[in-house]
Design a binder for these strands. Structure first.
Lengths: 263, 263
DNA sequence: CGCCGAATTGACACGGTTCAATTGAGGTGG
DNA sequence: CCACCTCAATTGAACCGTGTCAATTCGGCG
């Protein structure tokens, strides 16, 4: 069951699977527990949390809801550069007073927890403590998906992009949500367009195509990936490289398939 | 003259402007000097230095030549996710045994210097020493341009992408090369296509258009940006946010213009 | 001189956009 | 419980930015 130890899970108060064992010391545990106990801050959907170039007041972990980093061009074109999910970290960049490299905003109602407490350990030690390793792993994973995003936008067709994104979301959500093949996908087609660099109209047509071909099932906000294998090979989706070479396999057959394909 | 203190310059043995003063201590200086003294490793063009998911043997700084990170799809489509220029760091990711998130290769003959010596300080201290701050600033800048790359590919037209890329290159090269408005741009149209997510043919046509409109001058490998202002507003290019709020202005009028536009 | 990779060019096809309605679904108030 | 409002989803048709294919030309270099 334990794949690795992404912070996404460790810190997320909503994490189902309380990571058992390995690198997490007692001290680490208590730090995490203290975080869990903290009360979250709530923001409605479409709230601008930080604009480009502005400092991020304090680092935080997303407890619930979806958000994004985006940049907007003069004529209104918007590109979402990354989607933020529960468990994602914000404000843990290389710099101390973290500067936002793009506009940060909520896509759905969102709650987050101040993670300032993690900062000292993170800044000081890097690899020594379990939490630091977890943070590193999480940030590395973020970077991996950012790179994938570039490939999606640069060289993949609408269908491939969409498939790839859905698989990425499923993968990332599997840490915190159910391992089910269905999940809540609260993005409007408009937003999907801004993520994938497509027009709403074409997003719509691509979705219809995917439904017609029995690749996915999507009603309102519930997305079920029907044919994981087809989508995976179609989109050439590869999960991020695991930090520890000795990463344990997963419980879900689909994911382990994907893992195998990686090597 | 000193804008800030990007490691790109500090460490680069070829750096013209030996940074005078500020955060760099004597100890830092000697570390850098030792790096400069090191002999570089040379690689011919089109050499694969690390493949996706493979560990990066040792961290290094590029001394000369251009390289890139890229990912290749099953049918041969290639997307370059970032271009590496002299002064760029590789292998300074969040993880200790740095894992390459994409294929790393040289685009021109390249030489680089083992930067293992910087690692201990970097891992341990983060913000305490001048070199660490410089490394942080450099990596933050890399991340900024990666984000910009996403926007380029997702929401900009061929012309805008090309203009934006040229301005980025000019900006990044200004640290190590001449502050001239012309510079050596050794990328073939083929490669440009793989960077910008365009076909060679269209790259060619876009270049011709830019020449016809007196926006640039490009012969073989020499690129001169004629109308910086036009390109800047056309592409909505913005230089990366400066790390210190108290960043000093630059010597070049163009850049300070751009800086102003940022805020 | 002749070769080879890179740059160019033209014709044509297609993926994706734009514009402009129309339909559908959830929420609200009467 | 239904009329109504609003926002998201859908649909059709025309248009156009880029890609593809297939030559052709150019520029070094042996």
């Amino acid at each position: 069951m334990p794949r690795e130890f992404p912070l996404h899970v460790a810190v997320s108060p909503l994490a189902r699977r309380a990571r058992n064992g390995s690198d997490i010391s007692e001290q680490d545990r208590s730090i995490l527990a203290r975080l869990d106990a903290k009360s979250a801050r709530y923001y409605p959907a479409d709230t601008k949390l930080a604009s480009e170039g502005a400092p991020i007041r304090y680092p935080f972990v997303i407890r619930s809801g979806w958000g994004c980093h985006s940049r907007i061009l003069g004529d209104g074109r918007r590109q979402i550069t990354s989607i933020l999910l529960p468990g994602n970290l914000v404000g843990f960049g290389y710099r101390s007073p973290s500067v936002s490299l793009s506009t940060l905003c909520s896509l759905t109602p969102m709650s987050m927890i101040d993670a300032t407490d993690l900062l000292p350990a993170w800044r000081a030690q890097r690899d020594s403590c379990g939490i630091c390793k977890a943070i590193s792993a999480a940030l590395t994973e973020d970077e991996y998906f950012l790179t994938s995003h570039v490939v999606r936008l640069g060289r993949q067709t609408a269908l491939e992009r969409m498939a790839h994104l859905f698989l990425e979301l499923q993968y990332r959500l599997s840490w915190t949500g159910s391992m089910d093949d269905a999940f809540v996908m609260p993005l409007t087609q408009d937003i999907l367009g801004d993520v994938l660099g497509l027009s709403v109209v074409h997003v719509n047509r691509t979705l219809q195509y995917m439904r017609r071909e029995q690749l996915i099932e999507l009603s309102r906000t519930r997305l079920r990936v029907i044919d994981v294998d087809a989508l995976t090979s179609l989109a050439e989706f590869k999960p991020p490289p695991s930090s520890s070479a000795l990463a344990v396999g997963t419980s879900g057959g689909d994911t382990s398939d994907a893992q195998r394909r990686m090597n």
